[in-house]
Amino acid sequence: MIDDLAELVAMYNEGSWAWGDFVHQVTLLIPEVAVHTIIDQLPDALRDDFVTWLRTTYENDVPADSFVSIGRQSHPEQQRIRLELLRAWLRAHPSSKNRQ
């Protein structure tokens, strides 16, 4: 597993992150780390929940600068790039519900 991702997961498991903070922090690894790499390398116990959270949060057309950042300064341009990559992955991997 990528070092930073492994460290994040370990921190989450020891309680350093609330779920929402953890998954958001994982997305901050993008674009240095590819979306599919992150999803592939997440532990099984977290992967489905992470993807579900991705769909809930980003499977929409909300502009990057319309998200409200809490506890950290927003960087709309970086956020825009992340969103494009995440949404591209989500489009390429429609949920089973959507496929039906």
């Binding site: 921190m11 350093s16 922090q25 949060t57 909300v62 319309s66 409200v68 809490i70």
Partner: peptide, 18 residues
Amino acid sequence: KWLPPDSYAQYMGRDFLS
């Protein structure tokens, strides 16, 4: 590195849909 730039502490850090 796990805190936002120029920060010393954090208890919540994430984006929400408006």
